[in-house]
Design a protein around this nucleic acid. Structure first.
Length: 868
RNA sequence: GCCGAAGUGGCGGAAUGGCAGACGCGGCGGUCUCAAACACCGCUGAGGGCAACCUCGUGUGGGUUCGAAUCCCACCUUCGGUACCA
């Protein structure tokens, strides 16, 4: 591999110099600014981190970090995200794996456009200059990204394949067009949720009142994969991600039941109203029905006398957010439409309402309301004085009234009451019987509903992948032929000071000839959701420059599913779900064989500004890594970010404590280059700890090194970087204790220093490379990079100890500790405990009722009374 | 609101059923120095006690257990997501 005998870049120092005044050795100081750029240049020159994807001598290991959005708010958070992933890449390389750690940029999206509108610049220029700066900063970390496989999504070489995939989905019936409401500003067009401000819902830019507007938009049929997406057997997710995705998909089993409208003055009746319910067993308790304001039958069924009020309510509901509508805290609202429905099981007439707590997009957009057994229905019934009829009760609970709320509990002994012929049946069985009977009459069936909705991929924006279809007055929607791809995003863009998609005004882009009939036609002006870009980029990393196909199936087969994906917890649902679904669609198109994109996912936390808010330039809470790197060096910054706390936690940024990490590296420097030096500040300097001879000291050092190795290895594997560094600090403290003593410089000492450097190499690559090089040079050995070394192995015999300390509790409270031989039996430990003066005093002559030996001899608890 | 997560010294955190506070910051004291800085050594949860030690203590209130920061129930606060931020 990358071995050379060249030693010109390092100096063989470490020759003892004359003691400085005060008896201190004068060794060259640790100066990261001198070391780091030199090694970075050297690694780049050796192409140490460019992967050979076809290397079959080592097992492949694909390590993927979520590609960054080039926001322009370049901050310490990016380092926080990337540093541990880089350390893992180095760790796995030291275990003999062929590691692929690519990087790229998620370059399309709203912020570029916001900046463009505000500052009247081109989103492409804004994005590209941010990418330039970010590349430089990411390189200054000393990270081992393989830049030769970089992907930038706003490059036509990438986004043309978004278009290609879209056309395949269209052919396969996986993409379709339907109406969908958007937040609409008369001046700025479609608004994202973050662009709608205040309780009065006004536009972020012009302040105009935001309304809802229905637009024809493109969808991907995610719901087709709902059940498969609920199967996590081939993907290792953190539990919270799996749970959130499961809840997001929200599979509900129940029944679809057909009500009919009752005849009335304004309406002949007999119109079918389908409802979905998870509780068909409560059908006899339905005392009214609720339609979503969007329900298509609302206008038709509304009585003329009620029309004005219903229309007003529907208009008002359209401008409410879903979060607001579903809030269980807000008082329920709704209006009667002046028509009734007929309950199919008992022929009862029940009134129909519209209310915004029922959503048009879920189930059938209509519900049967059972106030006795649903809290939302109960709240509505209570507000409007509607009857509440109990139809399910636990044994012995039938008589209890429901004055204080709905009865929704589920217990095994529930039975139906007030339910005609079904009365007395267990609730579950009754529900199935009711659905079965209705199904026989053609008035219902068992049904499954999902909360998950199809993926709306249309964006009324400029800075994204153009959707490759053409609207022809003759032929309707015509896909752009493959040979005409990519549909290029025009480079000239004129926002005219408004957020309305400039593509809609770009005549050159807009006007085309129909590929089918040759007549005049117009391009689609919607662009794609950037989640489309981010749903397959790791496949493209493997062959980023291929011009004739999106992916290289052989490399994809060899390298994916990705071994480890790391990224922010904020992506737990949407990105991680859409990307899984995209892989399944690619599979069904025959492009790949994988069922899941990644084997394992880890979510790291997010670094916030010192104020606890997300870091952004506009908030002025951004910490720039450059100034810290200048002051302390990249290794200190890397280490500090890993040491701050658990990686999955994140939290507000504070540089407090970075000095401690820097001091640790200084101590490591001292230990590695000046083992025999003595600190005048230490009264015990150069002396062994009391009661230890040289042999014991050397054994102590060796034991510490191997115990550290065992813990550090486990910590890397478990992503516990903070405790990994703490353990290395402890080892450095042990070595510092022996510095200047007879044990310093012994074989055990040298082994411990060597191991410490290897263990720290993934996290602090520059200083370890420098010290490694100097030690090689000092022994006259040829240079080779520490980063091509193998990870050391634990010698179990080094860790064995002759005695162990056992804490002794009385009634669960720590009272004493006894030292016993390592192999002592439970009886021996118990005898030692009972022999302790302190324990005897506390027991005061009482015999323990019970003696608990916990954790394989780790602790003893003497119980002298049961109430402890 | 709903879904998910977190809450431990002055601060970041460690310990995920068994010694609460590893490691680090800050603080206090010391060594070195003409002096300062650096570096190094020691102490540092709260209360009580001359001391040995004792009591209390992991957001709040309950519970399970020989034993709870850790498990269960209820609540409070903060953070992430909530389908056009990425």
């Amino acid at each position: 591999m990358t071995q050379t005998t060249d030693t010109t870049t390092t100096n063989a120092t470490d020759t003892p110099e004359a003691p400085a005044p005060g008896g201190r050795h004068r060794i060259e100081r640790y100066d990261p600014t001198a070391i780091e750029p030199r090694w970075q240049a050297r690694w780049a020159e050796l192409k140490l981190y460019e992967v050979d994807l076809d290397d079959e001598t080592r097992p492949p290991y694909y390590l993927l970090t979520m590609y960054p959005y080039p926001s322009g708010d370049l901050h310490i958070g990016h380092w926080y995200i990337k540093t541990p992933t880089d350390a893992l890449a180095r760790f796995h390389r030291m275990h003999g794996k062929n590691v692929f750690l690519p990087i790229g940029f998620d370059a399309f999206g709203l912020p570029a456009e916001n900046a463009a509108i505000r500052n009247n610049i081109n989103p492409r220029d804004w994005t590209n200059s941010n990418i330039e700066n970010m590349r430089r900063q990411l390189r200054s970390m000393g990270a081992t990204f393989d830049w030769s496989h970089e992907v930038v999504t706003s490059d036509p070489a990438y986004y043309q394949w978004n278009q290609w995939f879209f056309l395949r989905f269209l052919e396969a019936g996986l993409a379709y067009r339907a109406k969908s409401p958007v937040d609409w500003c008369p001046n700025d067009g479609t608004l994202a949720r973050e662009q709608v401000e205040g309780v009065d819902r006004h536009c972020w830019r012009c302040g105009a009142r935001v309304e809802k507007r229905d637009l024809e938009q493109w969808y991907i049929r995610v719901t087709k994969y709902a059940d498969e997406l609920l199967d996590f057997s081939e993907i290792e997710f953190p539990d919270p991600v799996r749970i959130q995705q499961t809840n997001w998909i929200g599979r509900s089993e129940g029944g679809e039941i057909v009500f009919e409208t009752a005849p009335s003055d304004h309406h002949p009746g007999g119109k079918e109203l389908r409802v979905f319910t998870t509780r068909p067993d409560t059908l006899f308790g339905a005392t009214f029905m609720v339609l979503a304001p969007e329900h298509p039958l609302v206008p038709e069924l509304t009585a003329p006398a009620r029309k004005a009020e219903v229309d007003a309510y529907v208009a008002q509901a359209a401008n409410r957010t879903e979060i607001d509508r579903l809030s269980t805290e807000r008082e329920k609202t709704g209006v009667a439409i002046g028509a009734d429905a007929i309950n199919p099981v008992n022929g009862e007439r029940i009134p129909i309402f519209v209310a915004d707590y029922v959503l048009g997009g879920y189930g059938t957009g209509a519900i049967m309301a059972v106030p006795a057994h649903d809290e939302r229905d109960y709240a509505f019934a209570a507000r409007f004085g509607l009857p509440i009829r109990r139809v399910v009760a636990a044994a012995g609970d039938e008589g209890r009234d429901l004055a204080d709320g709905a009865y929704v509990a589920h217990s095994a002994d529930e039975r139906l009451v007030n339910s005609g012929p079904y009365t007395g049946l267990p609730a579950d069985e009754g529900g199935r019987a009711i659905v079965g009977e209705l199904e026989a009459q053609g008035k219902g069936k068992a049904a499954v509903t999902y909360r998950l909705r199809d993926w709306l991929v249309s964006r009324q924006r400029y800075w994204g992948t153009p959707i490759p279809v053409i609207h022809c007055p003759t032929d309707g929607i015509v896909p752009v032929p493959d040979k005409d791809l990519p549909v290029l995003l025009p480079d000239t863009v004129n926002y005219e000071g408004s957020g309305i998609n400039p593509l809609t005004r770009d005549e050159a882009f807009l006007n085309v000839t129909c590929p089918k009939c040759g007549g005049p036609a117009q391009r689609e002006t919607d662009t794609m959701d950037t989640f489309m870009d981010s749903s397959w980029y790791w496949y493209r990393y493997l062959s980023p420059r291929e011009t004739y196909r999106p992916i290289d199936p052989e490399l994809v087969q060899e390298w994916t599913p990705v071994a480890q994906y790391t990224g922010g917890a904020e992506h737990a649902v949407m990105h991680l779900l859409y990307a899984r679904e995209f892989t399944k669609m690619m599979r069904d198109l025959g492009l790949i064989k994988q069922n899941e994109p990644w084997k394992r996912v880890f979510n790291q936390g997010q670094i916030l500004g010192a104020d606890g808010e997300r870091m952004s330039k506009s908030r002025g809470n951004v910490q720039d890594p450059d100034e810290l790197v200048q002051r302390y060096g990249a290794d200190t910054v890397r280490l500090f970010l890993m040491f701050m706390g658990p990686w999955d936690l994140g939290g507000p940024w504070s540089p407090d404590g970075i000095g401690g990490v820097h001091r640790f590296l200084n101590r490591l420097w001292t230990i590695a280059l000046d083992p025999s030096g003595k600190e005048p500040g230490d009264p015990d300097a150069g002396r062994l700890p009391e009661g230890e001879d040289e042999a014991a000291a050397r054994q102590h050092i060796r034991g510490a090194a191997h115990r550290t190795l065992k813990g550090v290895t486990a910590d890397y594997e478990a992503f516990h970087f903070n405790t990994m560094i703490a353990k290395l600090m402890e080892l450095a403290n042990v070595l510092m204790r022996y510095r200047g003593s007879v044990a310093a410089g012994s074989a055990e000492w040298e082994e411990a220093v060597r191991m410490a450097l290897l263990m720290l190499a993934p996290a602090a690559p520059h200083i370890t490379e420098e010290l490694w090089s100097r030690r090689l040079a000092a022994t006259g050995a040829p240079w080779s990079s520490i980063h091509t070394e193998r990870w050391p192995e634990v010698d179990p015999s080094a860790i064995v100890e002759a005695t162990r300390e056992v804490p002794i509790q009385v009634n669960g409270k720590l009272r004493d500790k006894v030292v016993v031989a390592a192999g002592a039996s439970q009886a021996d430990v118990e005898a030692a405990a009972l022999a302790s003066d302190r324990i005897r005093a506390i027991l005061a002559g009482r015999d323990p009722l019970k003696v608990i030996h916990a954790g394989g001899g780790r602790l003893v608890n003497l119980v002298v009374r049961e109430d402890g």
